[in-house]
Amino acid sequence: MLQVEQLTRCFGDALAVDEVSFEVPDGHLVGFVGGNGAGKTTIMRMIMGVLAQSSGSMRWEGQELTASDRRDFGYMPEERGLYPKQSIVEQLAYLAQLHGVSRPEARDRAHELLSRFSLAERAKDKLETLSLGNQQRVQIIAAVISRPTMLILDEPFSGLDPAAVDDMVVLLREFTAAGVPVLFSSHQLDLVERLCDRIVILARGRVVADGDAEQLRRSGTIRHRLVAGTDVGWVRDLDWLQAIDVSGNTAIVQLASEADTDRLLTEAMRRGSVRELAELVPSVADIYREVTR
């Protein structure tokens, strides 16, 4: 498990990361969400040790995170690029070797992962001859080829077609199934909501929301929709609720408590038939807009 505690980073007078704390438990897929400049990449670079923190700490399996721990991590940096002019299989094997894998083993793994991502026949080509989407796949292979103990992936899904996204998801699931913690950032909120065991939302260098998708949605403002047999204009006259939108026989309202649901239902039934009274749970995208506003 990776624990980030009170992590802070200043650039001159500017506070890029402000006392950020969160956890990436073993076997969890944690999504890092936030706008440009929210601090995602800065935090990931600090976790990988390529940028020093101003203050705060990071712990790995309960101990302070060290350079030798990081050497077993897999990392995919924000701005892509391996060696454009070197053959794909050669550079993948080289990166695995840097992590201590023997050369024959490194080459075997490179070929295996390339065929998994349908790139087997391109193995000997130079990286620059691949399409951007395929280069992205190679970049992912580079992050996992050393069989890391933790994965830090900055925008791993950007630029991937839906089929590659699915391949990638299957791959990440294999890692989490084996207990490896995975932290990845993304702008694709629907994807994050669908995949992640936990979501950390950042804004202006701070954590503004942290939890699983259900917890996040529940943390937002839950509204109700009432659909009645007749006009529901009377809702506007109730002082214990807030009418958000009333039109014809449909009203969107915000209730102060769960108990008020029954109260509203009783009121409506007293005035005629009720077709629907439903909770409107916000999506993670709605939550994101709300907390990052």
């Binding site: 040790g49 390529v50 990392y75 701005e79 892509r80 391996l82 990166l95 840097l98």
Partner: peptide, 10 residues
């Protein structure tokens, strides 16, 4: 091309 970040971590 930022591969140095991958290498620096390794």
């Amino acid at each position: 091309n930022r591969i140095v970040e991958i290498i620096a971590a390794a």
